[in-house]
């Protein structure tokens, strides 16, 4: 073996060879770290900005409208009549109920379809099949929602109208179904993650007891992944509540309390879009009501999101 020649390190380093103080103040490092931290901090600023933007106009709005009336009133006539008049019905419940009805329809589609796909991908599909199916499935979430809305309005509703006895071209039912397909990938891919995270040992244990694949999937994997699956559904729910374009295009702009999903009804997001795309003069009552509805929407989705984040954390901790 060759005699080492790598040596004499310290002779070249000279007097500073054992000096452990920084050779340079490394100002650059500190500047970079501050810039990176500032970029991360910006996201907090965005949230603060959202809250300020939503809350400040509320003072004016609730100076004219009682919060009780806003939250419990069952008639909403903001977009009717004189734009500058506060003398209207400001009960937000019709918008809220339409939002949750559309969301319910969407989940009624997305939960079974999404979970079925998730079980298939996690427990039955080969790796190669998974590699093809997943990106194709993602396309469902990649199609712009305004396109879904336009499709529901001009292609799907005309087909389904006679079959389902839908009275009007604008309706929550078809919009909700289409929205359900939009959130299928969300529900499917997060549920699949949760099921794939179930340790193989649990499956082996089940097979060792003589269970077949179906029993293992339904009685071992599904319960073990349940909190992750619920998180996936909750996230899908949040998506549906906040979805705007499908409902603005296909759901209609009539704010009313209805129990029939085949009716036209305006959701919170559709109302915001309607007011924003028409002209709501700054300072008019209807302009302020946009912020009030936006604030309520934000509070609802924030609550849902925090629940979902907590659930995801819990299921990550388990394994």
């Amino acid at each position: 073996m060759a005699v080492t020649t790598a040596g004499r390190p310290r002779s070249s380093a000279g007097g500073s060879g054992r000096d452990l103080t920084p050779r340079s103040p490394r100002v650059g490092e500190k500047i970079i770290e501050s810039l990176l931290a500032a970029a991360a901090g910006l996201s907090v600023l965005v949230t603060v900005g959202i809250i300020v933007a939503l809350v400040v106009p509320l003072f004016t709005f609730f100076a004219h409208v009682s919060p009780i009336e806003f939250l419990t009133g069952t008639t909403w006539t903001a977009s009717f009549g004189d734009k500058y008049s506060w003398d209207k019905d400001w009960g937000v419940l019709p918008l809220v109920s339409a939002t949750f009805m559309a969301t319910g329809i969407a989940l009624a589609v997305a939960i079974p379809v999404g979970l079925g796909i998730a079980m298939f991908l996690s427990e039955y599909a080969t790796t190669r099949a998974r590699k093809v199916i997943k990106p194709v499935l993602e396309l469902l979430a990649g199609i712009p929602t305004v396109v879904y809305g336009f499709l529901a309005l001009t292609a799907l509703t005309p087909i389904l109208q006679p079959l389902l006895g839908i009275p009007n071209i604008y309706n929550l039912l078809v919009a909700g179904i289409v929205m359900g397909f939009m959130i299928v990938p969300t529900v499917a891919s997060l549920s699949e993650d949760a099921m794939s995270a179930v340790p193989q040992a649990l499956r082996s244990g089940s097979y060792a007891l003589g269970a077949n694949r179906r029993m293992t999937t339904l009685q071992v994997v599904f319960p073990a992944a349940l909190s992750g699956i619920i998180a996936a559904i909750v996230l899908g729910l949040s998506r549906a509540v906040g979805e705007t374009m499908i409902l603005a295009v296909a759901g209609g702009n009539l704010a009313r309390l209805t129990a029939d999903p085949r009716d036209e009804a305006q959701t919170m997001t559709a109302f915001i879009a309607q007011i924003a795309s028409g002209d709501a003069p700054q300072g008019s009552p209807v302009y302020y009501s946009l912020f009030a509805v936006g604030a309520l929407l934000f509070v609802i989705t924030l609550t849902i999101n925090l629940i979902s984040i907590r659930l995801v954390r819990r299921f990550r901790q388990v394994y």
């Binding site: 060879g17 054992r18 000096d19 452990l20 103080t21 920084p22 050779r23 490394r26």
Partner: peptide, 11 residues
């Protein structure tokens, strides 16, 4: 104090 962990790792 005053010791830089980067310099430490270089030594």
């Amino acid at each position: 104090p005053g010791v830089d962990e980067i310099e430490v790792r270089r030594r």
